[in-house]
Design a protein around this nucleic acid. Structure first.
Length: 713
RNA sequence: GCGCGGUUAGCUCAGUUGGUAGAGCAUCCGGCUUACAUCCGGAAGGUCGCAGGUUCAAGCCCUGCACCGCGCACCA
């Protein structure tokens, strides 16, 4: 006689127990999976920030990927899902620095590089457990034996190897160029780490001096002390006569030399049609200066302060300097117009600091250089597999966005002026430069102080997690990975760079399919943010309604590439569904008194038809799974279980179960059990805990864990 | 400026190759029927953003427009 189930399903009691059972089985590791399995199926988990806490976005990612991997496992694949965590360089360092500043009133320079790194490591170690336990709480069936951290030893070797190979190929170079300087974070950032914000600002129209023949317009008068030219369009009749003339002027107490030049990049319609060229503090101006061989005078430093001028200017913040220069223009009768305009300003994604373009000597990845012996650039390597369909991006329209990004792509600035990260393996001695992990032989070598952009190491993730640069079995078996599932917001940061790195280092794509999910928003469609206080905490919801309910609420109603809205009532709805399923099982266990006898019973034609009907549903769901329509597969099984199985089949079976005719009764019992088992299998990838728990209560011969049972035909 | 997506029931969203509009939640009515009140039975609710076009047939295809969101570029 089977034990009687409690009236309501208690997720908290079940979940820890079941997860432990799964882990103890060893089946998360594909090497231990039962049966003959030849076809590999692999996913790398986009590594969450090691010091972070689980938010609904990560919960969505874990839910979808677990659906994928469980489905693959039930389909007899060598299913591998590699877990990992990300060091999140700038974010983590900033966090630790803030703590230290608060508790000890010290900054990083007081501590020194080594001590700070020690503190960060300790902080990471202390916080790591949190995110890992949260991954477990979601039911994620990751192979913990292959856990990777972006800053661990194996990944360090991979990053070094990648850098050195690209340096030797000439793809990584050092260049003095205008870079995006974040004065708040005190580091350079890449073009992709810029967030544009619309702000009101003033556009000033003025002349450098009374004698200067041309007026110019600017939103940043303080930078004009760094001007070395005025550029006009070559066809602009108003200014033709001045082109080629040079002037020595005194501007706001600073001597400047201005040459009037003609350049096609100038828009004659904007402002006065004449552009004051500030080579050292504007990307466009830098390019103009390159074309016309102008000098590039830097007037602002890394702290956003002026480096020229008298006491009213020198060492002042740019905002103060701006006021002074405007005042000076007014006093000298040079200001002609002052108007409000809306401008897009560049801010740093991580710190919010306003970007100050500055010329700096930095390390770059060249994306337009032909690779030796391959007649391809890194841009080609990124574009080709997507264009040919070797990599499929879901939703498909993201492909356009992807190409658009590649078309506009410039060289990637990869050096950062922070301490936490993979240090640039470059050594200097006088005029010598060497690229190596270890300090070169001999005296006087100094290592480059910078570390690499965190996305540089992330870009290697599909193969660094498999042991590269060693030619491991895992690498041979599981790379290219089957599918990459991640948020559309990191298509450029991560997906594109992985395609680049894998294409260059392995001559392979990193994955065959990219599935992009959207943002999880609150019930009003707003972004989740601390200031709005609208965060729905996944762990709290798991505690209240169960991980299965949270998973279902995230997956259903979410299509690829679109943002989804989540609310507590939605989660509650799926908790109710858990309970419904629980009671279906309870009813069936109560109606089937004993063991395996009836499993050999003959089915009535009516009962057989019910089973055949389910087979149709099952095939339909399988098709949805194969075509990545998880939301639909989930909804269909939900609908079948509740409104077909429970509402109709079970209700109608009540008569059969009390029938005088033992054949009818036995047939009904067999039918109910078979349908239940099929439903549990179909639902398992979505709601793994409750299905596993119910399955464990059934008396079935040759039963294994549900997680490794065969997906219904 | 270039591009992408969205606009379907009060709310959140489905609608896979064009074939009589769907789900959940909310609402209303009725039910403690011995699996489940975290439930059961029933009802109401939609000119599918607007305007044209193709078609025997359009939520779905084509053209234009509007509004919302997003990406990129510009940003003197």
């Amino acid at each position: 006689m089977p034990e009687e189930l409690p009236k309501t399903y208690n997720s908290t009691e079940v979940e820890d127990k079941i997860y432990k059972r799964w882990e103890d089985s060893g089946f998360f590791n594909p090497d231990n999976l039962p049966g003959e399995r030849t076809e590999p199926y692999s996913i790398v988990l986009p590594p969450p920030n090691v010091t972070g806490i689980l938010h609904m976005g990560s919960a969505l990612m874990l839910a979808i990927e677990d659906v994928l991997i469980r489905y693959a496992r039930m389909n007899n694949k060598k299913a591998l899902w590699i877990p990992g965590t990300d060091s999140a360089a700038i974010a983590t360092q900033a966090r630790v620095e803030k703590d230290i500043s608060k508790k000890e009133s010290k900054n990083r320079h007081d501590l020194g590089r080594e001590e700070l790194l020690k503190r960060i490591d300790r902080f990471v170690e202390e916080n790591k457990a949190t995110i890992l336990s949260q991954i477990r709480a979601m039911g994620a069936s990751v192979d913990w034996s292959r856990y990777a951290y972006t800053m661990d030893g194996i990944r360090y070797r991979a990053v070094m190897a990648a850098f050195i190979r690209m340096y030797e190929e000439g793809l990584i170079y050092r260049g003095n160029r205008i870079v995006n300087w974040d004065p708040k974070g005190q580091t350079t950032i890449s073009d992709d780490e810029i967030v544009y914000e619309e702000r009101k600002t003033k556009l000033y129209t003025f002349r450098y001096s009374k004698d200067f023949p041309v007026s110019i317009a600017t939103t940043r008068p303080e930078t004009k002390v760094g001007d070395t030219a005025v550029a006009v369009h070559p066809d602009d009749a108003r200014y033709k006569k001045y082109v080629g003339k040079e002037y020595d002027l005194e501007f706001a107490g600073v001597s400047i030399h201005i040459k009037i030049i003609a350049d096609k990049s100038v828009d004659p319609e904007f402002g006065t049609g004449a552009l004051g060229v500030t080579p050292a503090h504007s990307t466009i101006d830098w390019e103009i200066a390159e074309r016309h061989d102008l000098s590039k005078k830097q007037v602002i430093n890394e702290y956003g302060r002026m480096t020229v001028g008298g006491e009213n200017l020198l060492d002042k913040k740019v905002t103060e300097a701006r006021e002074f220069v405007v005042q000076w223009l007014k006093e000298n009768g040079l200001l002609e117009k002052e108007e409000e305009i809306i401008q897009n300003i560049s801010t740093a994604q991580r710190t919010g600091g306003i970007i100050e373009p500055l010329p700096k000597l930095q390390w770059f990845v060249n994306v337009t250089k032909k690779i030796h012996g391959r007649n391809k650039t890194l841009k080609d390597i990124m574009r080709d597999p997507v264009a040919s369909g070797e990599i499929k991006i879901i939703p498909e329209h993201s492909t356009k966005t992807y190409f658009h990004w590649i078309d506009n792509l410039r060289d990637w600035c990869i050096s950062r002026q922070i301490w936490f990260g993979h240090r640039v393996p470059i050594w200097y001695r006088d005029q010598e430069i060497k690229c190596s992990i270890e300090k070169p032989a001999g005296e006087g070598w100094e290592q480059d102080p910078d570390v690499l952009d965190t996305w540089f190491s992330s870009a290697l993730w599909t193969f660094s997690t498999l042991g590269w640069p060693d030619q491991t079995n895992d690498l041979a078996t599981y790379h290219p990975t089957t599918i990459l599932e991640t948020g559309y917001d990191i298509l450029f940061f991560w997906v594109a760079r992985m395609i680049m790195m894998s294409g260059f280092h392995l001559k392979q794509v990193p994955f065959k399919t990219v599935y992009l999910h959207g943002l999880v928003r609150d019930e009003k469609g707003r972004k989740i943010s601390k200031s709005l206080g609208n965060n729905i905490d996944p762990l709290k919801m798991i505690g209240k309604y169960g991980a299965d309910a949270v998973r279902m609420s995230l997956i259903i109603g979410t299509t690829a590439g679109t943002d989804s809205k989540l609310s507590e009532p939605k989660i509650r709805g799926y908790r109710n569904f858990s309970n419904k399923l629980w009671n279906i099982a309870r009813f069936i266990l109560m109606s089937i008194p004993d063991s395996t006898e009836f499993q050999k019973s003959l089915l009535t034609t009516e009962d057989q038809k019910l089973i055949d009907d389910l087979a149709v549903v099952s095939q339909d769901i399988t098709k949805d799974m194969e075509e990545f329509r998880f939301y639909m597969a989930g909804e269909k099984i939900y609908h079948y279980i509740w409104h077909a199985f429970a509402d109709k089949i079970i209700e109608e079976s009540k008569v059969k179960l009390t029938s005088e005719d033992p054949a009818i009764k036995a047939s009904a019992q067999r039918m109910l059990l078979e349908i239940l088992v099929t439903c549990l299998k179909l639902l398992h990838p979505f709601m793994p805990f409750i299905t596993e728990e119910i399955y464990s209560k059934l008396q079935i011969p040759d039963k294994q864990l549900l997680m490794v049972e065969k997906w219904p035909e």
